[in-house]
Design a protein around this nucleic acid. Structure first.
Length: 110
DNA sequence: CTAATGACGTAGA
DNA sequence: ATCTACGCCATTA
């Protein structure tokens, strides 16, 4: 039980071929500014879960890396490419093209 | 109860 | 464009 459940719910709503930033998920999860909690939540969820954690990236449009992930960042990139997401030569993702627009944000969108 | 942790975000230089 | 520093606060031991 935890606010993390909300985060998981948001991540599960990310459609294939799209990506969301931690801040994006945090905002949709009613936790603006708690991007760290989102990232930490995904760390706990682990790739064994049915949650598309690989569709969540940082605000820079890149995949976060951490020595504790044992190279799971490589796996994440592989999964994203499998969904048709392109990576720039710099190893980044075109956020403005693949950024998932949450339904709550659709109303806010100009 | 306290202490430590953490896949981030933003601002300033 | 890159780098540093601080804040954010739920979860776990």
């Amino acid at each position: 039980m935890a606010a993390y459940e909300t985060i998981y719910a948001i991540v599960r709503q990310i459609p294939v071929g799209k990506v969301a930033t931690y801040g994006q998920v945090a905002d949709l999860a009613h936790m603006p500014g708690r991007a760290r909690l989102v990232g930490y939540a995904l760390f706990r969820v682990a790739p064994n879960s049915d949650i598309p954690w690989h569709r969540v990236i940082n605000a820079k449009g890149e995949i976060s890396e951490s020595p504790e992930r044992y190279g799971s960042d490589y796996l994440q990139r592989s999964l994203l490419e499998a969904e048709g997401i392109q990576f720039t030569p710099h190893g980044k993702i075109s956020l403005q093209d693949y950024r998932w627009i949450g339904q709550a944000l659709l109303s806010q969108k100009t």
